[in-house]
Design a protein around this nucleic acid. Sequence first.
RNA 1: GGGGGUGUGGUGGAGUGGUCAAUCACAACAGACUGUAAAUCUGUCGGCCUUUGGCCUACGUAGGUUCGAAUCCUACCGCCCCCA
Length: 396
Amino acid sequence: MRPRFTVTTKHRGSRARLGVLRTPHGTVRTPAYVIVATHAEVRTLTPADIKKTKTQLVIANTYHLWEQRDAHRMLGARIPMMTDSGGFQVFSLGAAKDHRVGKVLKRGHRTTGTGSDYSTVAITEDGAHFSVAGKRRSITPESSIATQERLGADIIFVFDECTSPLHPMRYTKNSMDRTHRWALRSLKAHTRTDQLLYGIVQGGRFKRLRAASAKTLAALPFGGYGIGGSFGKDEMTETLASVIPHLPDDKPRHLLGIGSVSDIFAAVEAGVDTMDCVIPTREARHARIYTDDGIVDVRKMAFADDRRRLLVSRASIGRLHRLFRARDQRAGRLATLHNVRWFNLTLERIRAALADGSYGTFKRSFLTRFSPPRRGSSSARRRTHTHTGSRGSRAY
RNA sequence: GGGGGUGUGGUGGAGUGGUCAAUCACAACAGACUGUAAAUCUGUCGGCCUUUGGCCUACGUAGGUUCGAAUCCUACCGCCCCCA
Protein backbone atom coordinates (compact mmCIF):
# COMPACT_ATOMS: atom_id res chain seq x y z
CA MET A 1 0.00 0.00 0.00
CA ARG A 2 1.13 3.48 -0.82
CA PRO A 3 0.85 5.88 2.14
CA ARG A 4 -1.56 8.75 1.56
CA PHE A 5 -2.11 12.07 3.26
CA THR A 6 -5.36 13.99 3.12
CA VAL A 7 -6.10 17.38 4.58
CA THR A 8 -9.62 17.20 5.97
CA THR A 9 -10.20 20.57 7.62
CA LYS A 10 -8.44 23.89 7.46
CA HIS A 11 -8.52 26.15 10.47
CA ARG A 12 -9.74 29.68 9.96
CA GLY A 13 -7.45 32.17 11.62
CA SER A 14 -4.22 30.21 11.27
CA ARG A 15 -2.47 27.81 8.93
CA ALA A 16 -3.43 24.86 11.12
CA ARG A 17 -5.09 21.95 9.44
CA LEU A 18 -6.54 18.60 10.37
CA GLY A 19 -5.51 15.64 8.31
CA VAL A 20 -5.36 11.91 7.94
CA LEU A 21 -2.18 10.05 7.11
CA ARG A 22 -2.83 6.49 6.01
CA THR A 23 0.09 4.10 6.08
CA PRO A 24 0.60 0.35 5.75
CA HIS A 25 0.80 0.12 9.52
CA GLY A 26 -2.20 2.22 10.39
CA THR A 27 -3.77 5.64 10.27
CA VAL A 28 -2.50 8.82 11.89
CA ARG A 29 -4.79 11.71 12.70
CA THR A 30 -2.92 14.97 12.41
CA PRO A 31 -1.71 17.20 13.93
CA ALA A 32 0.09 14.46 15.85
CA TYR A 33 3.00 14.21 18.26
CA VAL A 34 5.53 11.58 17.27
CA ILE A 35 7.13 9.59 20.06
CA VAL A 36 10.84 8.94 19.79
CA ALA A 37 11.90 5.31 19.60
CA THR A 38 15.49 5.72 18.50
CA HIS A 39 16.48 2.07 18.88
CA ALA A 40 13.05 0.92 17.69
CA GLU A 41 11.85 0.95 21.27
CA VAL A 42 10.37 3.64 23.44
CA ARG A 43 12.76 3.61 26.36
CA THR A 44 11.31 1.91 29.45
CA LEU A 45 8.10 0.91 27.63
CA THR A 46 6.96 -2.46 26.36
CA PRO A 47 5.09 -2.75 23.04
CA ALA A 48 1.86 -3.12 24.99
CA ASP A 49 2.72 0.02 26.96
CA ILE A 50 3.14 1.98 23.76
CA LYS A 51 -0.36 0.99 22.74
CA LYS A 52 -1.71 2.06 26.13
CA THR A 53 -0.41 5.58 25.57
CA LYS A 54 -2.41 5.75 22.32
CA THR A 55 0.69 6.71 20.42
CA GLN A 56 -0.06 7.09 16.73
CA LEU A 57 3.39 7.35 15.25
CA VAL A 58 6.95 6.68 16.40
CA ILE A 59 10.31 7.63 14.96
CA ALA A 60 13.36 5.39 14.99
CA ASN A 61 16.87 6.19 13.87
CA THR A 62 18.99 4.92 11.03
CA TYR A 63 22.28 5.77 12.72
CA HIS A 64 21.46 3.55 15.67
CA LEU A 65 19.85 0.76 13.63
CA TRP A 66 22.24 0.60 10.72
CA GLU A 67 22.79 -3.14 11.10
CA GLN A 68 19.12 -4.00 11.63
CA ARG A 69 16.50 -4.93 9.12
CA ASP A 70 12.91 -4.94 10.34
CA ALA A 71 12.22 -2.01 12.63
CA HIS A 72 8.59 -2.97 13.20
CA ARG A 73 9.59 -6.41 14.36
CA MET A 74 12.03 -4.79 16.78
CA LEU A 75 9.39 -2.40 18.03
CA GLY A 76 7.00 -5.26 18.57
CA ALA A 77 3.97 -3.13 17.90
CA ARG A 78 1.99 -2.40 14.77
CA ILE A 79 2.21 1.38 14.74
CA PRO A 80 3.04 3.73 11.90
CA MET A 81 6.73 4.51 12.01
CA MET A 82 9.23 6.99 10.69
CA THR A 83 12.96 6.56 10.52
CA ASP A 84 15.29 9.50 10.71
CA SER A 85 18.13 9.38 8.21
CA GLY A 86 21.08 9.83 10.56
CA GLY A 87 21.33 13.50 9.62
CA PHE A 88 20.75 14.60 13.17
CA GLN A 89 23.77 12.64 14.36
CA VAL A 90 25.91 14.74 12.05
CA PHE A 91 24.97 17.51 14.45
CA SER A 92 24.54 15.77 17.79
CA LEU A 93 27.83 13.88 17.54
CA GLY A 94 29.63 16.72 15.79
CA ALA A 95 28.87 20.41 16.10
CA ALA A 96 26.61 20.01 19.12
CA LYS A 97 29.41 18.48 21.13
CA ASP A 98 32.01 20.96 19.97
CA HIS A 99 29.73 23.99 20.26
CA ARG A 100 28.17 22.70 23.46
CA VAL A 101 24.69 23.60 22.31
CA GLY A 102 21.39 22.01 21.49
CA LYS A 103 19.46 22.58 18.30
CA VAL A 104 17.31 25.25 19.90
CA LEU A 105 19.48 28.14 20.99
CA LYS A 106 18.87 29.36 24.51
CA ARG A 107 18.00 32.92 25.35
CA GLY A 108 21.08 34.91 26.08
CA HIS A 109 23.44 32.38 24.56
CA ARG A 110 26.15 33.67 22.27
CA THR A 111 24.87 33.48 18.75
CA THR A 112 27.89 32.85 16.60
CA GLY A 113 30.31 30.05 16.48
CA THR A 114 32.90 28.80 14.15
CA GLY A 115 34.01 26.16 11.87
CA SER A 116 33.29 22.73 10.76
CA ASP A 117 36.28 20.81 12.02
CA TYR A 118 34.59 18.53 14.45
CA SER A 119 36.43 16.07 16.57
CA THR A 120 34.07 13.22 15.72
CA VAL A 121 32.44 13.93 12.37
CA ALA A 122 33.91 14.89 9.03
CA ILE A 123 31.55 16.07 6.31
CA THR A 124 32.39 15.71 2.64
CA GLU A 125 30.38 16.01 -0.53
CA ASP A 126 29.94 12.27 -0.46
CA GLY A 127 28.50 12.06 3.05
CA ALA A 128 29.29 12.16 6.74
CA HIS A 129 32.15 10.24 8.28
CA PHE A 130 31.81 9.43 11.94
CA SER A 131 34.54 8.47 14.32
CA VAL A 132 32.80 7.80 17.57
CA ALA A 133 34.25 5.81 20.46
CA GLY A 134 37.03 4.55 18.27
CA LYS A 135 34.71 3.23 15.58
CA ARG A 136 34.48 4.65 12.11
CA ARG A 137 31.33 4.80 10.03
CA SER A 138 30.21 6.67 7.02
CA ILE A 139 26.71 7.53 5.94
CA THR A 140 25.88 8.71 2.45
CA PRO A 141 22.48 9.62 1.05
CA GLU A 142 22.44 6.31 -0.80
CA SER A 143 23.43 4.20 2.22
CA SER A 144 20.95 5.98 4.47
CA ILE A 145 18.09 5.34 2.06
CA ALA A 146 19.15 1.72 1.59
CA THR A 147 19.15 1.21 5.35
CA GLN A 148 15.81 2.93 5.74
CA GLU A 149 14.29 0.77 3.02
CA ARG A 150 15.60 -2.28 4.83
CA LEU A 151 14.19 -1.03 8.14
CA GLY A 152 10.87 -0.61 6.42
CA ALA A 153 9.32 2.39 8.15
CA ASP A 154 6.29 4.03 6.60
CA ILE A 155 7.95 7.42 6.38
CA ILE A 156 11.64 7.95 5.77
CA PHE A 157 13.83 11.02 5.48
CA VAL A 158 16.52 12.19 3.12
CA PHE A 159 20.02 12.24 4.53
CA ASP A 160 20.81 15.79 5.59
CA GLU A 161 23.10 17.81 7.76
CA CYS A 162 21.48 19.37 10.77
CA THR A 163 23.45 22.55 11.35
CA SER A 164 24.26 24.18 14.66
CA PRO A 165 22.45 27.34 15.76
CA LEU A 166 25.93 28.82 16.14
CA HIS A 167 26.88 28.25 12.53
CA PRO A 168 27.21 31.53 10.68
CA MET A 169 25.24 32.31 7.57
CA ARG A 170 27.97 31.29 5.17
CA TYR A 171 28.46 27.84 6.66
CA THR A 172 24.72 27.31 6.97
CA LYS A 173 24.21 28.26 3.31
CA ASN A 174 26.93 25.93 2.04
CA SER A 175 25.62 23.12 4.19
CA MET A 176 22.08 23.72 3.01
CA ASP A 177 23.11 23.60 -0.64
CA ARG A 178 24.90 20.32 0.00
CA THR A 179 21.86 18.96 1.83
CA HIS A 180 19.81 19.84 -1.26
CA ARG A 181 22.21 17.88 -3.43
CA TRP A 182 21.98 15.03 -0.95
CA ALA A 183 18.19 15.28 -1.13
CA LEU A 184 18.31 14.75 -4.87
CA ARG A 185 20.57 11.73 -4.42
CA SER A 186 18.26 10.37 -1.72
CA LEU A 187 15.30 10.76 -4.05
CA LYS A 188 17.10 8.86 -6.80
CA ALA A 189 18.12 6.09 -4.42
CA HIS A 190 14.61 5.58 -3.10
CA THR A 191 12.77 2.64 -4.69
CA ARG A 192 10.05 1.45 -2.34
CA THR A 193 6.62 2.81 -3.13
CA ASP A 194 5.09 1.84 0.20
CA GLN A 195 7.23 4.40 2.00
CA LEU A 196 6.88 8.16 1.84
CA LEU A 197 10.21 9.93 1.46
CA TYR A 198 10.37 13.36 3.05
CA GLY A 199 12.81 16.08 1.98
CA ILE A 200 14.24 18.17 4.81
CA VAL A 201 14.19 21.95 4.82
CA GLN A 202 17.35 23.48 6.27
CA GLY A 203 18.61 27.05 6.55
CA GLY A 204 19.12 27.28 10.29
CA ARG A 205 18.19 30.54 11.90
CA PHE A 206 18.27 32.47 8.63
CA LYS A 207 14.83 33.13 7.27
CA ARG A 208 15.93 33.86 3.72
CA LEU A 209 17.78 30.56 3.62
CA ARG A 210 14.77 28.79 5.09
CA ALA A 211 12.51 30.16 2.38
CA ALA A 212 14.99 29.28 -0.33
CA SER A 213 15.33 25.76 1.01
CA ALA A 214 11.57 25.28 1.12
CA LYS A 215 11.20 26.49 -2.46
CA THR A 216 13.98 24.28 -3.74
CA LEU A 217 12.61 21.15 -2.10
CA ALA A 218 8.99 21.93 -2.94
CA ALA A 219 9.90 21.63 -6.60
CA LEU A 220 11.01 18.04 -6.07
CA PRO A 221 8.59 15.09 -5.90
CA PHE A 222 8.85 14.26 -2.22
CA GLY A 223 6.07 12.51 -0.36
CA GLY A 224 6.28 15.05 2.41
CA TYR A 225 8.57 17.59 4.01
CA GLY A 226 10.57 17.63 7.16
CA ILE A 227 11.61 20.90 8.72
CA GLY A 228 14.95 20.34 10.35
CA GLY A 229 17.98 22.20 11.50
CA SER A 230 18.39 24.63 14.32
CA PHE A 231 16.25 27.38 15.71
CA GLY A 232 16.65 30.45 17.83
CA LYS A 233 14.56 30.54 20.96
CA ASP A 234 11.44 32.65 20.37
CA GLU A 235 12.04 32.49 16.63
CA MET A 236 10.06 29.32 15.99
CA THR A 237 6.96 31.09 14.72
CA GLU A 238 8.84 33.36 12.33
CA THR A 239 11.02 30.57 11.03
CA LEU A 240 8.04 28.34 10.31
CA ALA A 241 6.26 31.26 8.71
CA SER A 242 9.09 31.67 6.26
CA VAL A 243 9.05 27.97 5.34
CA ILE A 244 5.57 26.56 5.28
CA PRO A 245 3.90 28.90 2.76
CA HIS A 246 6.38 27.61 0.18
CA LEU A 247 5.56 23.95 0.77
CA PRO A 248 2.86 22.14 -1.20
CA ASP A 249 -0.46 22.28 0.61
CA ASP A 250 -1.37 18.68 -0.02
CA LYS A 251 1.82 17.14 1.37
CA PRO A 252 2.42 16.33 5.03
CA ARG A 253 4.90 18.44 7.00
CA HIS A 254 6.94 17.11 9.85
CA LEU A 255 8.79 19.34 12.29
CA LEU A 256 11.89 17.44 13.33
CA GLY A 257 12.93 17.35 16.96
CA ILE A 258 10.50 19.92 18.32
CA GLY A 259 9.15 20.38 20.90
CA SER A 260 8.04 21.94 24.04
CA VAL A 261 4.43 22.62 24.96
CA SER A 262 4.56 26.15 23.62
CA ASP A 263 6.29 24.89 20.47
CA ILE A 264 3.38 22.53 19.86
CA PHE A 265 0.90 25.37 19.58
CA ALA A 266 3.23 27.47 17.46
CA ALA A 267 3.87 24.56 15.12
CA VAL A 268 0.26 23.53 14.75
CA GLU A 269 -0.77 27.09 13.96
CA ALA A 270 2.03 27.38 11.44
CA GLY A 271 0.67 24.38 9.57
CA VAL A 272 2.81 21.55 10.89
CA ASP A 273 1.13 18.15 10.72
CA THR A 274 3.48 16.04 12.81
CA MET A 275 6.38 16.74 15.15
CA ASP A 276 8.63 14.58 17.26
CA CYS A 277 10.68 15.30 20.33
CA VAL A 278 12.46 13.45 23.12
CA ILE A 279 10.95 15.76 25.72
CA PRO A 280 8.10 13.49 26.88
CA THR A 281 10.29 10.41 27.23
CA ARG A 282 13.60 11.85 28.35
CA GLU A 283 12.10 14.25 30.85
CA ALA A 284 9.94 11.46 32.22
CA ARG A 285 13.07 9.48 33.03
CA HIS A 286 14.39 12.63 34.66
CA ALA A 287 11.30 12.81 36.90
CA ARG A 288 9.63 15.74 35.14
CA ILE A 289 5.93 15.05 34.90
CA TYR A 290 3.64 17.01 32.64
CA THR A 291 0.26 17.91 34.05
CA ASP A 292 -2.49 20.30 32.99
CA ASP A 293 -1.31 22.48 35.88
CA GLY A 294 2.26 22.64 34.64
CA ILE A 295 5.45 20.67 34.82
CA VAL A 296 6.43 19.08 38.06
CA ASP A 297 9.69 17.57 39.33
CA VAL A 298 8.26 14.73 41.33
CA ARG A 299 11.53 14.09 43.14
CA LYS A 300 10.94 17.20 45.22
CA MET A 301 9.67 16.76 48.77
CA ALA A 302 6.56 18.72 47.97
CA PHE A 303 5.22 15.66 46.16
CA ALA A 304 5.89 13.05 48.82
CA ASP A 305 2.21 12.79 49.68
CA ASP A 306 0.69 13.94 46.43
CA ARG A 307 -2.34 11.79 45.76
CA ARG A 308 -3.02 12.89 42.22
CA ARG A 309 -2.93 9.98 39.84
CA LEU A 310 -0.74 9.44 36.84
CA LEU A 311 -2.22 8.73 33.46
CA VAL A 312 -2.25 5.13 32.26
CA SER A 313 -0.82 3.45 35.37
CA ARG A 314 -3.07 5.30 37.84
CA ALA A 315 -0.23 5.25 40.36
CA SER A 316 -0.13 8.32 42.61
CA ILE A 317 2.46 11.03 42.17
CA GLY A 318 3.49 10.33 45.76
CA ARG A 319 4.31 6.74 44.84
CA LEU A 320 6.26 7.88 41.81
CA HIS A 321 8.14 10.29 44.08
CA ARG A 322 9.18 7.39 46.30
CA LEU A 323 10.15 5.19 43.37
CA PHE A 324 12.37 7.90 41.91
CA ARG A 325 14.03 8.51 45.26
CA ALA A 326 14.62 4.81 45.70
CA ARG A 327 16.10 4.72 42.20
CA ASP A 328 13.57 2.05 41.42
CA GLN A 329 13.66 1.11 37.76
CA ARG A 330 9.87 1.17 37.61
CA ALA A 331 9.84 4.94 38.10
CA GLY A 332 10.95 5.68 34.55
CA ARG A 333 8.28 3.48 33.07
CA LEU A 334 5.40 4.96 35.07
CA ALA A 335 6.62 8.46 34.30
CA THR A 336 7.07 7.70 30.61
CA LEU A 337 3.64 6.11 30.34
CA HIS A 338 2.20 9.24 31.87
CA ASN A 339 4.09 11.84 29.86
CA VAL A 340 3.61 10.11 26.53
CA ARG A 341 -0.08 9.75 27.18
CA TRP A 342 -0.29 13.38 28.29
CA PHE A 343 1.36 14.66 25.12
CA ASN A 344 -0.85 12.45 22.97
CA LEU A 345 -3.88 13.62 24.91
CA THR A 346 -2.88 17.24 24.45
CA LEU A 347 -2.78 16.73 20.69
CA GLU A 348 -6.12 14.92 20.83
CA ARG A 349 -7.59 17.99 22.51
CA ILE A 350 -5.98 20.28 19.98
CA ARG A 351 -7.48 18.27 17.13
CA ALA A 352 -10.90 18.32 18.77
CA ALA A 353 -10.68 22.07 19.25
CA LEU A 354 -9.63 22.59 15.64
CA ALA A 355 -12.53 20.43 14.52
CA ASP A 356 -15.23 22.23 16.44
CA GLY A 357 -13.88 25.73 15.97
CA SER A 358 -12.98 26.33 19.61
CA TYR A 359 -9.22 26.33 19.09
CA GLY A 360 -8.62 29.92 20.16
CA THR A 361 -10.56 29.55 23.37
CA PHE A 362 -9.06 26.16 24.07
CA LYS A 363 -5.52 27.40 23.63
CA ARG A 364 -6.04 30.37 25.93
CA SER A 365 -7.52 28.39 28.77
CA PHE A 366 -5.05 25.54 28.34
CA LEU A 367 -2.01 27.79 28.49
CA THR A 368 -3.40 29.87 31.32
CA ARG A 369 -3.71 26.75 33.40
CA PHE A 370 -0.49 25.11 32.22
CA SER A 371 1.75 28.13 32.66
CA PRO A 372 0.02 30.92 34.56
CA PRO A 373 1.58 34.36 34.18
CA ARG A 374 4.17 34.81 36.88
CA ARG A 375 3.16 37.22 39.57
CA GLY A 376 5.60 39.32 41.56
CA SER A 377 9.26 38.58 41.21
CA SER A 378 10.82 36.03 43.50
CA SER A 379 8.16 33.77 44.92
CA ALA A 380 6.55 33.13 41.59
CA ARG A 381 6.56 29.38 42.02
CA ARG A 382 3.16 27.87 41.65
CA ARG A 383 1.51 26.36 44.63
CA THR A 384 1.18 22.65 44.40
CA HIS A 385 -2.00 22.45 46.46
CA THR A 386 -0.85 19.40 48.32
CA HIS A 387 0.49 20.92 51.48
CA THR A 388 -1.47 24.02 52.18
CA GLY A 389 -1.44 23.82 55.94
CA SER A 390 2.18 22.92 56.35
CA ARG A 391 3.67 26.37 56.41
CA GLY A 392 2.51 27.35 59.86
CA SER A 393 1.03 30.71 60.67
CA ARG A 394 2.23 33.70 58.77
CA ALA A 395 2.58 37.17 60.15
CA TYR A 396 0.94 38.73 57.12
C1' G B 1 37.98 -4.63 88.14
C1' G B 2 42.13 -5.12 84.10
C1' G B 3 43.54 -4.33 78.88
C1' G B 4 42.59 -2.33 74.00
C1' G B 5 39.86 0.77 70.60
C1' U B 6 36.84 4.89 69.31
C1' G B 7 34.21 9.84 69.45
C1' U B 8 34.60 14.72 62.83
C1' G B 9 29.33 18.64 59.48
C1' G B 10 21.86 15.92 58.41
C1' U B 11 24.10 10.56 57.86
C1' G B 12 28.17 7.22 56.66
C1' G B 13 33.11 7.97 56.59
C1' A B 14 38.37 10.49 55.18
C1' G B 15 41.92 13.45 57.45
C1' U B 16 46.78 12.13 62.52
C1' G B 17 50.97 19.33 63.72
C1' G B 18 50.41 24.29 59.31
C1' U B 19 47.98 24.97 52.13
C1' C B 20 41.20 22.42 56.86
C1' A B 21 35.24 25.16 57.16
C1' A B 22 37.66 19.98 56.60
C1' U B 23 38.53 14.46 50.48
C1' C B 24 34.47 11.40 49.17
C1' A B 25 29.63 9.21 49.20
C1' C B 26 24.55 9.51 50.59
C1' A B 27 20.60 12.68 52.02
C1' A B 28 18.71 17.75 51.29
C1' C B 29 17.98 22.07 48.11
C1' A B 30 18.12 24.40 43.30
C1' G B 31 18.73 24.15 37.97
C1' A B 32 19.09 21.96 33.01
C1' C B 33 17.04 18.59 29.32
C1' U B 34 13.91 20.22 21.92
C1' G B 35 15.10 14.65 14.56
C1' U B 36 18.28 10.41 22.48
C1' A B 37 26.22 10.21 23.11
C1' A B 38 21.57 11.15 28.35
C1' A B 39 16.49 6.43 33.45
C1' U B 40 21.37 11.80 32.79
C1' C B 41 24.12 16.13 33.88
C1' U B 42 25.21 20.77 36.69
C1' G B 43 25.31 23.91 40.99
C1' U B 44 24.70 24.77 46.44
C1' C B 45 25.29 22.30 50.84
C1' G B 46 28.43 25.65 59.29
C1' G B 47 26.95 31.09 59.98
C1' C B 48 27.40 36.19 58.49
C1' C B 49 29.20 40.01 55.14
C1' U B 50 30.87 45.04 51.09
C1' U B 51 30.79 37.17 48.33
C1' U B 52 36.95 35.46 42.18
C1' G B 53 37.46 38.14 48.81
C1' G B 54 36.67 38.85 54.31
C1' C B 55 35.05 37.77 59.35
C1' C B 56 33.05 34.45 63.13
C1' U B 57 31.99 29.64 65.32
C1' A B 58 33.50 24.57 64.73
C1' C B 59 36.16 18.03 64.60
C1' G B 60 32.74 14.53 72.51
C1' U B 61 33.83 18.05 77.25
C1' A B 62 37.57 20.75 80.08
C1' G B 63 42.47 21.99 80.49
C1' G B 64 47.59 21.82 78.54
C1' U B 65 52.02 21.67 74.94
C1' U B 66 53.21 24.65 70.48
C1' C B 67 54.48 30.45 66.63
C1' G B 68 50.38 27.12 65.04
C1' A B 69 46.08 21.46 67.08
C1' A B 70 40.54 17.87 64.18
C1' U B 71 45.63 16.03 64.49
C1' C B 72 50.29 15.72 70.44
C1' C B 73 49.55 15.38 76.20
C1' U B 74 46.23 15.01 80.76
C1' A B 75 41.54 14.35 83.01
C1' C B 76 36.53 13.50 82.44
C1' C B 77 32.14 11.76 79.67
C1' G B 78 29.92 8.36 75.88
C1' C B 79 30.15 4.05 72.86
C1' C B 80 32.59 -0.73 71.19
C1' C B 81 35.71 -5.21 71.84
C1' C B 82 38.68 -8.71 74.81
C1' C B 83 40.10 -10.82 79.70
C1' A B 84 38.32 -11.59 84.70
